[in-house]
Design a binder for these strands. Structure first.
Lengths: 210, 210
DNA sequence: ATATATAATGAACATTTGTTCATATAGAAT
DNA sequence: ATTCTATATGAACAAATGTTCATTATATAT
């Protein structure tokens, strides 16, 4: 067996394809999909428009590819990211870990772009809504619900509807993430937002602990 | 003095102008501004495209007019709406009143359209961001903060950072409003969402009451 | 009833936009 | 070095889009 597998990842074509996606994400997230032209994309990539069609069937397929990336993005896998969450940690530490992960994601450039894409296309694109609902919302709420339910069984927290609690926990995190992206859009300072993630956990934990 | 003031509100032109705005709001909020064509608008209004230009300088001016409507919309004036809020009521009743107003707004058709317009244009339109930040966010958060601060003075609730509390109170309301608009988009049932507004107040009040 | 101001129409326009395709070029395999 | 495949280019296209304007129709005031 020889080792010279012709890995596509190093081919010229693969590099431009990756570049097209990166530049498109940047453009779609800042101007919106409809307002971005294929000429915009080509210019950003440093290539003529016709070259794009060697890598994607059309403009829509570029969006579709990016939209599918949402599934593998950070928020969709917030419970998988890092080793800590939901394994070793318990109680408040667990919640703090989730919140901190959320905070880091909110300040991550790539993720910020995906988030803005999500928000801007969620009403126009059914697939985006599907992914948001299934992978962003439901997965995380269900997972947290069951963790909270466990804590109730172990008398670590007060008895309550776990689904309501999970919503109450995530809503501010989502809200803060949105606020951060809006502040950045206007180049406002986001330093005051940093502490909000921990303060939320403090507030939340005080309410649910037994 | 005669009474036959020529009220513009009853003129033919005023009616179509109002209609153009109504149809444009419906279209912008469902397809997005950029994806809506002047032919779309004209068709919805039941008029030829050229007629639009008797009432608005161009397509942008239609959007601008709608955007300014955001300021006089319900969320921007949540504390003014109804007689109850912040006047007679105190403590939990006050919070419940705000939350209920928010719920009613979330289910109001006109407001839902404005909300969707806001969300879709907030990253592209600086004026939208300005209005959101000033009239939606800051006004309400400051007002609630000061009300909460009063409650702290009167030992009705525990001492805490009023700004944090205001954020924690509004974030889930905003989140639920967004969820409702998304559910409606997919024609999913929103009946389960109704109770969330009250449950949020229960949860929140339990945490802050002394 | 006639004149006047207001609003709607039809047709056209210059741009912009997404896409195609024949041709040229570069990189990899032989 | 030559062949072959993958990628990039240039030019062109049809369709869509925002806007204009001369003309016609409609309502209101005289």
């Amino acid at each position: 067996m020889s080792i010279d597998v012709d890995l596509k990842e190093f081919s010229r074509g693969f590099k431009t394809k990756k570049n097209i996606l990166a530049q498109s994400l940047a453009l779609f997230s800042s101007k919106g999909f409809k307002a971005t032209t294929v000429r915009d994309i080509a210019n950003s990539v440093g290539v003529k428009q016709s070259a794009l069609y060697n890598h994607f069937k059309n403009k829509d397929e570029i969006l579709e590819t990016l939209v599918e990336e949402l599934m593998t993005s950070a928020i969709a896998n917030i419970f998988i990211s890092k080793d800590n969450v939901s394994d070793r940690l318990q109680g408040k530490s667990l919640l703090l870990s989730i919140s901190t992960t959320f905070k880091l994601i909110s300040f991550d450039i790539k993720n910020e772009a995906l988030f803005k894409l999500l928000i801007q296309e969620i009403y126009n694109n059914e697939r985006v809504r599907e992914i948001y609902s299934e992978y962003f919302y439901q997965t995380n709420v269900k997972k947290l619900s069951s963790l909270l339910f466990e804590m109730m069984q172990n008398d670590i927290i007060k008895s309550n509807d776990p689904l309501i609690l999970a919503n109450e926990f995530f809503a501010p995190l989502f809200f803060y993430q949105m606020q951060i992206s809006l502040f950045k859009q206007d180049k406002k300072s986001t330093s005051a937002m940093v502490s909000l993630f921990e303060k939320h956990v403090d507030f939340f934990w005080d309410n649910i602990k037994s």
